[in-house]
Nucleic acid binder design. Structure first.
Lengths: 187, 187
DNA sequence: GTCTATAACTCGATAGAC
DNA sequence: GTCTATCGAGTTATAGAC
């Protein structure tokens, strides 16, 4: 079985984006990993930006699906959001999408920023909707933004520390705090 | 009154680091802003990395001082931590220190990662110490990590969205949640 | 559709005059 | 201590053969 070059290029970019970021990810490295030549890459994509956008959209989809799966489980709304927070992640690598949101080139190119902004907005909305199922929780919108922010910030701290400790502490702190507002009696 | 070239170089780098990140910040732009020539810069510093480290240390010091000032005020421990969260910031620019913590070149160069990691550790410790003043708060260490993470994540969300909305929501959510554990009777 | 060669540019850093 | 000229490497992208 053999996937075509276009597909392999997106696969490779999907893998390299979180590792190198956008600016530091060179077309040469993509071509190497995808086992695709220079000319081939520029045949399928107009350039690095278009390829990165395709890969970002794919990574964003994957994360959205994972969020929906994690929050669809059993338990109170708060418990389901906590389950999402506790998901398996690789803190030292960085978030496959958020990792590049600090990159200046990305933020200044609307085509690249768009899929990232949309994913975070969708994540926030999804989590807010789950929390809103419990009518006694006020400000579900703000709590949802906080949940997404804790995750992204936890990645930043882990990378800055060179170890996952701060990541786990931050997630743990957020989980504990959320549980204190969970009355846990609406199942 | 006239500051020497060395000082102007650090000043300029201090300003450019949060704006451009590390990789995208070129020595040429530093020289332009500092009104210092190429040769002069390489006379005072061994290169871009050494200059960036000096600037990062300065930015980290500034932020630590601001955190200590904000948490030294009136009110319960939780109120003082919330006051720190609510400090005036420029979400679309990015944190003067955390902004570069995602950069691969920075993370892989111990000389650059060190001052960043140390600042976050110090922030966490400071906030944990404040929260620990209230003996009824459990897991002050984890809550402190969460507070620092929320801030860093809020920056990420704002840059990804291209507007400060998500930043304000995340800070607001964290503030509200923290206030729910504040019994507010130990002053 | 894929290849190789190379253009056009920018990067960080160095050399050597003054 | 500061200047200008330049190096060598690496960048994204294009040209043109196959």
């Amino acid at each position: 079985m053999h996937v075509d070059a276009r597909e392999r290029l997106i696969d490779a970019t999907t893998e390299l984006l979180p590792r190198d970021g956008y600016s530091a990810m060179s077309p040469a490295s993509i071509q190497r990993l995808a086992r695709v030549g220079q000319g081939s890459m520029y045949h399928h994509f107009s350039g690095k930006a278009e390829l990165a956008r395709a890969a970002l959209e794919r990574n964003a989809d994957t994360l959205m699906v994972a969020c929906e799966a994690a929050t669809r489980g059993e338990g109170t709304p708060v418990q389901r959001v906590c389950a999402y927070l506790q998901r398996e992640r690789d803190p030292l690598l960085g978030c496959p999408v958020g990792r590049v949101a600090q990159d200046r080139e990305v933020v200044e190119d609307e085509r690249l920023r768009e899929p990232i902004g949309e994913m975070f907005a969708a994540l926030e909305q999804r989590i807010a909707a789950v929390l809103a199922e419990d009518a006694r929780i006020d400000a579900p919108t703000e709590l949802a933004a906080m949940v997404v922010a804790v995750l992204q910030g936890a990645y930043v701290l882990a990378r800055a520390a060179g170890e996952r400790g701060p990541f786990d502490r931050a997630i743990d702190g957020a989980t504990r705090l959320l549980q204190t507002i969970d009355k846990g009696d609406d199942r």
